[in-house]
């Protein structure tokens, strides 16, 4: 890790799965980013943020699923996630799980993109009764993808955006952001995993068993 005095830049990519404009999912994502950026500043790091909104990628995601090819805008989204040092992923809760669009994005995201990636998860929903969607759907999926999921996730119900419990949500956001920032700070800059190079290396190793020409 870089121990120089200059602030380390931490690249954060937000994956926002909200479907409506304005979206409470995006709202939660923005609040998480703001809180994480503030925590990182305190730790001497500097956050640089990119946002991947899934709604405009709906058709490209489905095309990728059906035909295997990725359009440029989806390819850029993949690159933004792959190049990040940390990811904040937020989805609306639909039918006791993440939204289908949110899941579909991860289904077409190239394998290994999230390996060793620190991820902060969040979800929104109509009532707080759906809050365990974070622990039962998002966390297992991201663990399966070999991400390092931050221990504290944030769920925001419609009522959390109201006046009475609003401060409780703010506290949860700050606490989750503090955990995640320490995780990011400890993990440091992340080297993007080059799967193509890994494939080639293993092919070269296999071919090494046979003598090449010249």
């Amino acid at each position: 890790m870089d121990q120089s005095d200059a602030a380390n830049t931490v690249k954060l990519t937000v994956i926002a799965g909200g479907l409506r404009e304005p979206s409470s999912t995006r709202l939660l994502a923005d609040r998480l980013v703001t809180a994480v950026a503030a925590e990182l500043e305190r730790l001497g790091d500097h956050a640089e943020t990119a946002v991947v909104e899934l709604r405009p990628l709906g058709h490209p995601i489905m095309d990728a699923m059906l035909t295997g090819f990725t359009r440029d805008e989806l390819e850029s989204a993949f690159a933004s996630v792959a190049d990040a040092d940390g990811v904040i992923a937020v989805t609306p809760a639909f039918n006791a799980s993440f939204s289908g669009l949110f899941k579909s994005f991860f289904d077409v995201l190239p394998e290994h993109t999230l390996s060793d990636m620190p991820v902060l998860i969040g979800a929104t929903g109509g009532t707080e009764r759906h809050s365990l969607v974070l622990e039962h759907a998002l966390r297992p999926m991201l663990t399966y993808l070999h991400a390092i999921v931050s221990p504290r996730a944030v769920y925001a119900a419609t009522s959390d955006f109201g006046l009475e419990s609003g401060s409780a949500l703010a506290e949860r956001i700050v606490a989750a952001a503090a955990d995640f920032s320490r995780l990011l700070h400890a993990c440091g800059p992340r080297a993007r995993r080059d799967v193509i190079d890994e494939d080639l290396a293993s092919m070269q190793e296999l071919l090494g068993g046979t003598e090449q020409g010249s």
Partner: peptide, 12 residues
């Protein structure tokens, strides 16, 4: 889409 096929072809 697999690049290692290109490597195999190139090798030989």
């Amino acid at each position: 889409r697999t690049p290692d096929v290109a490597e195999l072809a190139a090798h030989y």
